[in-house]
Amino acid sequence: MNIFRLTGDLSHLAAIIILLLKIWKSRSCAGISGKSQILFALVFTTRYLDLFTSFISLYNTCMKLIYIGCAYATVYLIYAKFRATYDGNHDSFRVEFLVVPVGGLSVLINHDFSPLEILWTFSIYLESVAILPQLFMISKTGEAETITTHYLFCLGLYRALYLFNWIWRFYFEGFFDMIAIVAGVVQTVLYCDFFYLYVTKVLKGKKLSLPA
């Protein structure tokens, strides 16, 4: 555990909780892509199956349970409790265009051709692109609530911090996981355009709105 890994995990946790609280407090999931949230629930489910097979640390187990629990709670709030506020017409990204290629790639390129390992690989690849329905939705409506941009910033920051974590681990532990690193770079790059808008607009007190 190093400082980048820890702050990355906490940033991820902050993102998840910001989103849950935003929906809960406003009693609305307007502007939130339910499809991205379903993909994240799928990511955690397929990645954390090792909860049943191996114990790494109390920290590891607790965080996994919190992530999975919050992911399903978010999906429940969007598709059940506050379904009336869900903006399905603007959430029109075709997720099969992500899930099918990612599924194929995880079968082809993995560390070990075993069910658990392929599912772990699937979750890594899927996480790298799971935010696309949300970014697509923002590009379609041309704007995002400020609290939604804080969520996206924390979520993007988490993977960027993991990149520093992997550099640290490579130098100090000789740890090197090519699949996680490449997917993590892709994931972080997808946020770059958003990071730019966040710094130039949201941090200066303006609402995030895209030029028509």
Partner: peptide, 10 residues
């Protein structure tokens, strides 16, 4: 191959 060694991250 030891998946625990590889997948100790979240």
């Amino acid at each position: 191959f030891d998946p625990v060694m590889w997948h100790d991250e979240l």
